[in-house]
Design a protein around this nucleic acid. Structure first.
Lengths: 172, 172
DNA sequence: CTTGGAATGTCAACAAGGCTGACTTAAACT
DNA sequence: AGTTTAAGTCAGCCTTGTTGACATTCCAAG
């Protein structure tokens, strides 16, 4: 920790006004963050019965990142109820984007995997999202990016931070 | 732009894996970002007819930050349809949290203000949100915070960035 | 003065995606 | 054998987003 030598100056970034700016930045940035996948899904939705939205994107994203994850684990990452997730998951399985395999050691569990088609959609969505992220990272530079990640991690609830880090460990 | 002297090292932070981590960090952090106001509203909702949610919080936040803003301007900031905003705004006005005054120069416009009661709720919600933000900022340090804000701003859609900066100019 | 357009408000209908509660099935643990 | 756990399902509710249609009010240009 940096010693608070000149208190007034050193803690300037902790004023209510600075915090408010951070809050607004989070809000506006998050809209950008979701804008591209949202748009792609909207376009694709014309030939589907059940429209896909952010919930489907999130499920696909995390199944891609943690292949073979159980439903319970996915529930923890997404932070929704199983009924909510199940509705999404069912359509993804029906449409052949996700495969659900019975567990080998514990046959109550279902392990989730993307099919080729699911992987293709995941790719398309995350390509768009990464493109925006890449542009922002490039513009901001490596030090800013490090700070960005540090602050975000500090903002998480402990349980979410666990999930966040668990993903890093499996796939470093 | 920094010259790509050692390409492999200099652009390490732009790998797909790094970008994915950033994406997940955004997702998990945003949940924390909204968790405290959500919880407070849930508790308060027991004695209300129409429950308040994030949409109400957002409306109150921006009316607080830009008192006297018109409905149209608020629409632009929030990025929703007027019907959607209207539903929220109507309940806030009915419940006496927001006041809508007819414009002086252009009497078609409505200018929005928080009442004392509205300000009290805004205070309560944003106190909680700022507390988390403050903790994260303190933990991360001033340089990280600067980077955080830089990246977030770079992630915004141009129109959102306009709104973001407009708030800074009025209230620097 | 009239008329077109802009800002606002309102009604109806619909969908996504959260939630709770109740209940079943199957498997594993004790 | 009985309990707990993982998953799935059904029904119903709410918020919050959407579209489309339409009324009102008022400014401003013709």
């Amino acid at each position: 920790m940096a010693e608070p030598a000149h208190r007034g100056e050193a803690l300037l970034y902790l004023t209510d006004e600075q915090l408010r700016q951070g809050i607004e930045a989070m809000f506006f940035a998050y809209r950008g963050f979701t804008a591209d996948p949202d748009r792609i899904l909207d376009e694709l939705n014309h030939d589907r019965a059940q429209n896909y939205g952010r919930a489907h994107h999130r499920a696909i994203h995390f199944i891609h990142c943690a292949p073979g994850t159980t439903v319970n684990n996915l529930l923890g990452m997404l932070g929704v109820t199983k009924q909510s997730l199940n509705r999404v998951l069912r359509t993804l399985i029906e449409d052949g984007l996700v495969e659900s395999r019975v567990g080998r050691t514990d046959r109550r569990e279902r392990h989730l995997y993307l099919t080729d088609e699911g992987r293709a959609l995941e790719q398309r969505l995350s390509d768009a999202q990464r493109a925006r992220m890449r542009a922002a990272y490039r513009e901001a530079g490596p030090e800013a990016v490090a700070g960005f990640r540090t602050v975000l991690e500090a903002m998480m609830d402990p349980e979410m931070r666990r999930h966040y880090r668990a993903l890093r460990e499996v796939r470093p």
